[in-house]
Nucleic acid binder design. Structure first.
Lengths: 401, 401
DNA sequence: CCGCAGCAGGAAAAGCTTTGCGTAACGATG
DNA sequence: CATCGTTACGCAAAGCTTTTCCTGCTGCGG
């Protein structure tokens, strides 16, 4: 109180002196309005309110103010109240830099994506943010763009900023070099895989996903199932195909068309391959596609031959890329890699590692199936009950049409 | 305990104690190898190498080491060299927290997106990262998910972290409340618009984009042009329609179908509306669509009526959403909002503001046109030369087919 | 009435870097 | 030989928060 007038003059000085008088940018110096007591700004040099300002206003020492605000140490309720009010009035916000410097924890994690916010890294980032943001953790975003130089630059920056941990994410599921060795902070790889044996990598279980898709088609009574997928060089293609073939083999069936058709991840390839498949094996009654774009191309190709989806040929895609899957005619049943969940898990593992609980190796997280029209059973009567036992009936009963 | 992995012996402890004995987690404590002098780590308490450690190894004072490393002040080349070597050997990384605390600049900006990394905010983020990341600026990522509570939480966090500035981005171009008032750091709104008159907002110029699309169609000789777009309540729909109508009016034409058809941003609506439009105005020879999804639906609908794209009906979309536009049959000519550029610009404006150069108001950045098959001219001979004057011929001459 | 215990709060240091100023040494010039 | 100037480096403070240790006061019990 006694300092009121004294500090008023300084506030005045700060506003004038900051050279901000140019534009129509007449920001009030403080959100809650200076009018309250004319004492909105602290008196430190840089205009930011410090705990010393709060302490002075409350008539206590900075240490006491700190304890009062953080609820640590024996501070009387009366004093606590006074400090709180002072902090409120000044709009005090503790300086996280100073705190981090002192405690050695910046409450910050780095997120390096090798895949400029692509379709796969985004849900992962989102999930990670889900798990970190609402807490006290902040996320540093770095887009390395698959460039080792950039990556190293960002890594250095992150370490300079003393992040508590790092998440690396990207499009490729094929193993990659570790981002660095002997780093002072834990690293978790999500939707990408490190060759470092001590690193923890989280990836979707493509094989399980492939099995899921084919198992579902089998459960709806399809038996002549083909597979059109992406390039052979992608681990994802191979694993999905593998899972699909394994599921077929379990029932004693072989893949229609003689095996997986490897190509591109495009609608165009989906059309071409489906066309060829329907020619070489006209009795195909289902196609499992390596991604949703291929599936959409397949849907078009099936229709173009006069067949119907799903009555003649059922389709299952992969990725659950909403905009593709729902716009498909008919809407596409597809495998969801639960990437958001994967990102969330990655963040949780990272937090665990920060707290000293490490893990290592490659962990594959299960995919799930999203049911839509493209794999609706033809005739409810044709369902083989045994195969339906493992799940609820996917569709409401529907008179044969 | 928590930071135990820095020292070699402590790593060992951590590995055993954390149940990680399974893996070959033999991380070298330092990338460049401990062997060098057996003293790769500094001797300060927390295991991070400080400038004091470097100074000691180089046989100088911390202040001198700082000056040597930053090239400030008269330091002899010899000493500089020695300090550099020491820093290298120890793997010294300056503590950005301490530096930020001292200089008052954290070299950090906050990026708040209201639109969980949606299709529109992503390119903006990417562009912002383009402009900031390679420099010394780091980006804090916050996903407010259109929730004011979350937004305020993030805002507080960012201010505590003493960011130098904030970029707000989101899906909506309709004006929104400012993120806060009287903030101590500059804010730039990108792909979203603040109602605060002192705020700077950067948005794409939808009206210009609409004009661009229609101008292009006119230049290819189309005259009976319809417009199918999204909901009337979106400013974007209205502005694009407005631009389209203005461009038509300039040539003395009216919009086919009696005016814009407002609906949803979906393929489904694109099909429906196009179907209706072709029924009510069978001589339509071009449709400008409010986004690429609508356009893709329109392409399907046009084909379903037995007409051809682009020979009977030309199509132009909006957004240049690659996966949609290129998968369309035929590939889609579309308006690109240059969102990445917009993000980059936002970042540059923010940097300018951080350096004291403020600006305010709503700035609309021009869209551009991406030419693909869906608007190829029917007959080169039918081109009206006058209308082509304002640009190079979009396609190589092609014998009528 | 005196002494001790307990509680509230103060003082100071630590955490790391940068920078201004002071100083020491050395070479050069009068 | 003495003094001045210059170069090279050290010292110390600042920047803000947290925490530990310590002091002073109050109240109660002996």
């Amino acid at each position: 109180m006694k300092h009121c007038w004294h500090r008023f003059s300084q506030v005045f000085f700060a506003v004038i002196g900051s050279g901000r008088e140019t534009t129509a940018n007449t920001v009030e110096p403080q959100g809650r309005g200076v009018a309250a007591d004319g004492n909105a700004r602290g008196s430190s040099g840089r205009g930011q309110v410090t705990i010393t300002d709060v302490a002075r206003l409350a008539g206590v020492s900075p240490g006491t103010a700190s304890k009062a605000l953080n609820g640590r140490g024996g501070i009387s309720p009366d004093t606590t109240q006074r400090v709180r009010q002072a902090a409120d009035r000044l709009g005090y916000q503790p300086n996280a830099l100073a705190r981090g410097l002192l405690t050695g924890r910046s409450c910050t994690v780095g997120l390096i994506t090798t895949d400029s916010f692509g379709r796969f890294s985004i849900p992962v980032m989102q999930g990670a943010e889900d798990a970190l943001g609402p807490g006290s953790m902040s996320v540093f975003l770095c887009d390395s763009r698959d460039d080792r130089i950039r990556e190293q630059h960002y890594l250095r920056t992150l370490l300079e900023r003393r992040v508590d941990g790092i998440i690396v994410t990207g499009r490729r599921q094929d193993p990659r070099e570790p981002v660095g060795s002997g780093l002072p902070v834990p690293v978790v790889y999500a939707m990408t895989q490190s060759t470092g044996p001590a690193d923890l990598s989280l990836v979707p279980d493509d094989m399980q996903g492939g099995g899921l898709a084919v198992g579902h088609l089998l459960s709806t009574g399809r038996t002549r199932i083909g597979h059109v997928t992406g390039p052979l060089r992608f681990a994802a293609s191979r694993l999905r195909a593998h899972g699909a073939e394994a599921a077929l083999a379990e029932t004693g069936l072989a893949m229609a068309g003689g095996g997986p058709l490897y190509g591109e991840w495009t609608e165009e390839w989906g059309r071409q391959a489906t066309d060829a498949l329907l020619r070489s094996a006209p009795d195909v009654d289902a196609i499992f596609c390596g991604n949703d774009q291929i599936a959409r191309g397949a849907a078009d190709a099936v229709r173009d031959t006069g067949r119907s989806v799903p009555d003649d040929v059922a389709l299952v895609g992969f990725d659950n890329w909403e905009v593709i899957a729902t716009a498909c005619r008919p809407p596409l049943t597809t495998v969801d890699m639960n990437l958001r969940e994967l990102g969330r898990t990655a963040a949780e593992r990272l937090l665990a590692a920060i707290n000293g609980q490490f893990a290592a190796g490659v962990q594959r997280l299960p995919c799930s199936l999203v049911l839509r029209e493209s794999s609706r059973p033809r005739q409810p009567s044709a369902l083989r009950p045994g195969l339906l036992a493992d799940g609820p009936p996917p569709w409401p009963a529907r008179p044969a049409d």
